[in-house]
Design a binder for these strands. Structure first.
Length: 113
DNA sequence: ACATTGACGGAAA
DNA sequence: ATTTCCGCCAATG
């Protein structure tokens, strides 16, 4: 029953492990948890995060594979996400992360095993 | 029950 | 590099 909750919990857990100043993608998280649930489900979980969970989940560190801040409209204010990222040393121009590959944090590699 | 949408991603054209 | 199309799965109309 409610496998969804377990899935949400897993997503939150991984997101919380993202180091400051690093970012990851929905797909990377989905892949780390197992491709059974696609990237869309990760986005779904994040959407539920702000409602059911507190702000202990750094959702601003999760962007799409293109390094774009696609989820900024789901924050308190559209610019909050960008501000939080720049505050951590990540440069964002036109809702896109600069040197995305450099800041990218892959749970598969970093948490590997 | 069917169609569209979505914090996505990858392959193909 | 850009656009188009398909797979993914739950929610919503």
């Amino acid at each position: 029953m409610k496998n969804h909750e377990d899935f949400f919990q897993n997503v939150y857990d991984v997101v919380r492990l993202i180091p400051k100043g690093r970012v990851t993608s929905y797909g990377a998280i989905a892949k780390y948890l197992g491709t059974a649930r696609s990237s869309r489900m990760v986005g779904w979980a994040m959407n539920a995060a702000h409602s059911s969970r507190q702000n202990d989940v750094p959702a601003h560190r999760v962007v799409n594979r293109n390094g774009e801040l696609t989820g900024k409209h789901h924050f308190s204010t559209p610019f909050l996400m960008k501000e939080l990222l720049e505050k951590e040393g990540i440069k964002v121009v036109k809702d896109k992360i600069k040197n995305f590959n450099k800041h990218f944090w892959d749970p598969m590699k970093e948490l590997e095993l």
